[in-house]
Design a binder for these strands. Structure first.
Length: 277
DNA sequence: AACAGCTTCAACCGCTGTCTT
DNA sequence: GAAGACAGCGGTTGAAGCTGT
């Protein structure tokens, strides 16, 4: 894998873009489209490196960029997705049309991180308290499962590990796991008091809202209304976990992203931190 | 009004992944 | 398979603006 050669520094502008430079870049892309970024500045007559042009375009000049403050909903989305995805700014940005990864990163560092500090302190305690003994998370011996999502109502969520599509009549082979269950896997809950053995390796995992709130806490009710409702909702997308917000109908996820979610759920040592809002 | 400290955000830097030759 | 070229990503920086004293 070759390293990109450092662009020619000699004679190239750096720093803030002027209006004239912006106009040249916009005009060029409007006429010729986004082609080879490296060749673009030369063709457009800009004394900038291609990388700088790409950044300026994607972070500032793109016509679909949404300007202005983030809405409460957008901020909530960022917080939740950051909880789940970490610093994958581009993945987070993909769920917020008109927002760039750079912008989200800035907002996170300047606003949201600070806002969360008191909560994280509290959360950190809670997580430590429920931390499982080392080695109790055994790997679930399954083929990479499919995740299915179903949102039936707003009551507390349960995760159902199942070979059966939810909603079908025959649920006999399904197992339901709530926050109090240990499914003897990396997909476990750390405040487990019992151990449940999965009789068959599930080939598919359904994330459903069971509607039964007796065994789950208020925290998980929040989870249902926030994470699951937003992140893995919609029966229309039951075959792939989809980030689907605001009715935009934008599905940023491909099969690779399904793999990502599978990986996330099967590899995470402690999913409970996702639940501890 | 002047200064210092803080915050914001556009832009840069270096790295990695992917595609092409 | 190796190496080059390129796009994209995340971390970091620094100038500009803001706020408090």
């Amino acid at each position: 894998m070759g390293r990109a050669p450092c662009c020619e520094k000699m004679g190239l502008n750096k720093g803030p873009w002027t209006k004239e430079e912006d106009q040249i870049l916009i005009s060029y892309i409007n006429e010729n489209g986004r082609g080879n970024w490296r060749a673009l500045p030369k063709k457009a007559g800009l004394l900038r490196c291609g990388k700088s042009c790409r950044l300026r375009w994607t972070n500032y000049l793109r016509p679909d960029i949404k300007r202005g403050n983030f809405t409460q909903e957008e901020e909530d989305t960022i917080i939740k997705l950051h909880q789940a995805l970490g610093n994958r700014w581009s993945a987070i940005a993909a769920t917020l049309p008109g927002r760039t990864d750079n912008e989200i990163k800035n907002v996170w560092h300047s606003h949201l991180k600070k806002r969360l500090i008191p909560q994280q302190d509290h959360q950190g305690q809670a997580v430590r308290k429920t931390q499982p003994e080392q080695g109790t998370n055994k790997a679930l011996s399954v083929e990479k499962p499919k995740f299915h999502c179903q949102d039936s109502n707003s009551s507390p969520v349960k995760i159902i590990v199942s070979k059966q599509e939810p909603g079908t009549n025959n649920q006999s082979s399904s197992l339901q796991y709530s926050s109090s269950d240990d499914i003897s896997s990396s997909l476990s809950f750390t405040d487990a008091t019992t151990t449940t053995t999965i009789p068959d390796n599930p080939t598919e995992i359904y994330l459903t809202n069971s509607g039964d709130g007796d065994s789950v806490s208020n925290k998980h009710q929040e989870l249902d209304q926030d994470i699951w409702h937003d992140v893995v909702s919609s029966q229309d997308h039951s075959l792939s976990p989809v980030l689907h917000r605001g009715g935009c109908g934008f599905n940023p996820f491909t099969n690779d992203d399904i793999n990502f979610w599978c990986d996330l759920f099967t590899r995470t040592e402690d999913i409970s931190h996702l639940l501890e809002f």
